[in-house]
Write a protein that binds this DNA or RNA. Structure first.
Lengths: 153, 153
DNA sequence: CTCATATCCGACGGTTTTGGTCGGAATTGC
DNA sequence: GCAATTCCGACCAAAACCGTCGGATATGAG
């Protein structure tokens, strides 16, 4: 009944990047310091986020990471899935609709329950975006809310 | 983003007890065999369930465990909480409304997200009872549905 | 060119949790 | 007394988790 700290740290990292959105790449050193998290560990986490195309990296001096899309367009479900894999409270309750894994006689309705729980979690997560985690007051770039949600591919 | 097998096994154990409700105590040996689970391990789990007053035990020969209340009155939230502790997707999101644990400057809205997720899980869990997991066809005792939800005392 | 700053990447290690076993004591019906 | 059970604590192996370390690579600035 819990997410790993991988999830927590990753979300905090993303929240920082959302806050700095529009200011160019932010180094992990900065983020780690401000958030009070171990930099070396964030390095690991951010790889998953990059592989999921949620952030993009710029190498070399003055490099760092930045969001690939506006915070308003990034739902938290994406973030958590990138960090922790598919949302399945139980192995038995993966995203496959014809699960059939539970071969117990036929009185095994427990699977049904896990699916309901999974949908509840996914629903909650997908109803929030990164922007919801960043109060407008602490945004770095004032122009940022002006950016309409036109994701020019 | 997952429950432990403690949760899964415990729920299946409870489902079995629900199925046999009204037949007197059921031994763990029986349940374990029918469900294909290690008996010695179930012994551990059932202790939590007993401490939470969800099942009661009868020691000695022909003893075993049985539900203390009718399956319809036992919500799954209770079961999971008994097995896995409080439902908190993150340490930060415990049941205390004035959490204040997150002392990060003030731009830390992430906590808010975990609370939403927790509520979603709890909501889903508390909207189902043990009886929902047991199709009427496989009930052991036909009288069982006749028992109205009058929890005497 | 050199240097400082970054990402990138694989390996490693320690602690904790998980999933489960074992042996035996206590209890009770027959 | 005997067999069936709960009860309980100790123990254990494997995996996951959290995090470190060292170094390779890339790049902008002076």
């Amino acid at each position: 009944m819990s997410f790993s700290t991988k999830g927590e740290y990753g979300v905090r990292l993303m929240a920082q990047l959302a806050r700095r959105f529009g200011d160019g790449p932010a180094s992990l050193t900065d983020v780690a310091e401000e958030e009070g998290l171990p930099r070396a560990y964030l390095e690991q986490l951010v790889i998953s986020l990059r592989d999921a195309d949620l952030v993009q990296s710029t190498r070399g001096a003055h490099g760092g990471y930045e969001l690939t899309r506006a915070p308003e367009t990034i739902v938290m479900g994406e973030v958590l899935r990138a960090l922790e894999g598919p949302i399945a409270p139980m192995i038995c309750a993966s995203d496959d609709p014809n699960h059939m894994a539970c071969s117990r006689s036929g009185h095994c309705m427990v699977n049904f329950m896990w699916v309901r729980v999974r949908d509840a979690i996914a629903g909650a997560l997908d109803s929030m975006t990164l922007a919801d985690l960043v109060p407008p007051a602490v945004r770095m770039h004032p122009d940022f809310p002006a950016t309409p949600v036109t994701i020019a591919d």
